[in-house]
């Protein structure tokens, strides 16, 4: 077995080259390149973790915004409902007032008209009475020789009219 047979003559040479090559691997690759690659991997892990955390935060923020929007929406709808209800009530109140005003106007007109009718009626009645008195005095004068006075006729006509 050459590994054993040659060991005394070659160990120095093997050691020499092993120290050089393994030393270079250890110092150049193990100590210098390996940590850099580790760093890259760690950096990537950190970046991924950071991105995931940011995404989670953004997700939470989106939920929050949605909740805020929902609350604002509900509030706006309530406000709108209140405004419309108020407008409706105000409209009803105004209409009622206008109707009442119009009613009052109409009543006033009605009273005026009734008063005018009553006045005219009274005037007509008085006129009829005067005409009736004159007619009765004429009829009596023509038909009878009796002389009657105006107050007598007046009284008689008034009584007749009151009976009618």
């Amino acid at each position: 077995m050459p590994q054993i047979d040659q060991i005394m003559t070659t160990y120095g040479s093997q050691l020499f080259w092993l120290v050089i090559t393994f030393g270079l691997i250890y110092f150049v690759i193990g100590r210098s390149m390996f940590p850099k690659i580790q760093g890259t991997v760690d950096q990537r892990k950190a970046k991924i973790a950071g991105d995931i955390a940011a995404a989670k935060a953004a997700h939470a923020r989106a939920d929050e915004i949605e909740e805020e929007y929902r609350v604002a929406h509900a509030r706006a709808r309530d406000a709108a409902l209140a405004v419309t209800a108020e407008a409706k009530a105000k409209g009803a109140r105004e209409a009622e007032a206008k109707v009442r005003e119009a009613d009052a106007g109409i009543a006033l007109h009605l009273a005026d008209a009734e008063a005018a009718i009553a006045a005219q009626q009274t005037a007509a009645l008085t006129e009829i009475e005067a005409v009736a008195v004159e007619a009765a005095q004429d009829i009596v004068a023509r038909l009878t020789p009796a002389k009657i006075t105006k107050p007598q006729v007046n009284r008689a006509v008034k009584g007749a009219l009151a009976d009618a």
């Binding site: 160990y11 040479s13 020499f16 150049v28």
Partner: peptide
């Protein structure tokens, strides 16, 4: 007391180093 020469073993150690690098 040891003779240091460039042997086939040394060559393959260097090749290993180069390959890893």
């Amino acid at each position: 007391g040891q003779t240091i020469t460039f042997t086939n073993s040394a060559l393959w150690m260097l090749l290993t180093l180069v390959a890893v690098w």
